[in-house]
């Protein structure tokens, strides 16, 4: 029993570490992108190795926990949820890596006017705020906080949909901007995807705490927003 508790707590700590690491990666990717800071972008690229190593460690430890302890009920839900959360966080890390890679590879900084038109910073802030909420929700096992991200994800989706129209109009006006707008469009897609991943994490926290499966149940989830 002591061993189960100890191993579960170690897994939980690794989960905290993964949240903190991926959040830091996304924050650094934002700074690197907005300030065209290729040094910071390089740091994000290097740190990706740590994210991948932690991902593998959590995966392996979850497998061992299941094999050695045969968990049931809340212990089982915890380990199943953590495995999926870990997978989603690693993808968040991948997106931070992708955003930073552009900075390393692209020479010209993005014009502030373009960022403003696409509500880029607002979108980034929203994605980071969702990651903050979900980190707190995980740390405090608080499903109310987890549910907060569902509403914020709708903001990301709205900006993402609107961006297509704006980019199309801007490129028609000045075709020379196409490269920059395409780059921005790709990053916007990544941020929108991060919103989806954080939403998945929220569903997993709710599954672990309340044994309720929200996946593919948009209506019910919306009611609780």
């Amino acid at each position: 029993m002591i061993s189960l508790e100890q191993n579960k707590e170690a897994l939980n700590q690794a989960g905290h570490e993964m949240f903190s690491l991926c959040k830091k990666q996304l924050e650094n990717a934002r700074e690197a992108f907005l300030n065209h800071d290729s040094e910071l972008a390089e740091e994000v690229l290097h740190t990706e190795n740590r994210v991948n190593a932690l991902d593998l460690k959590i995966d392996r430890d979850c497998e061992r926990f299941i094999a050695l302890h045969n968990p049931v009920a809340s212990d089982l839900r915890f380990v199943l949820a953590l495995r999926k959360i870990n997978f989603d966080l690693e993808r968040v890390g991948d997106h931070a890596y992708g955003i930073s890679k552009y900075i390393v590879e692209v020479d010209t900084p993005i014009a502030p006017g373009q960022l403003e038109k696409l509500r880029f910073e607002e979108m980034y802030e929203c994605a980071l705020s969702m990651l903050d909420d979900i980190t707190e929700a995980y740390n405090e096992e608080d499903t109310k906080k987890a549910r907060k991200v569902f509403k914020k994800d709708k903001v990301l989706n709205k900006i993402n949909i609107e961006s297509f129209k704006i980019i199309s109009e801007e490129v028609q006006k000045d075709p020379k901007t196409i490269d920059q707008y395409l780059l921005l469009f790709t990053v916007i897609k990544k941020l929108e995807r991060i919103g989806d991943l954080v939403t998945n994490i929220a569903e997993e926290i709710i599954f672990f705490r309340e044994a309720e499966v929200l996946k593919h149940r948009k209506k019910k989830r919306a009611k609780k927003d």
Binding site: M1, L4, V72, A73, S74, D75, R77
Partner: peptide, 16 residues
């Protein structure tokens, strides 16, 4: 074994 109603049951089946 997945989601018992009572805390006592949960504590027993999880070995606590």
């Amino acid at each position: 074994f997945t989601n018992p109603e009572k805390q006592q049951t949960e504590n027993y089946i999880t070995g606590r």
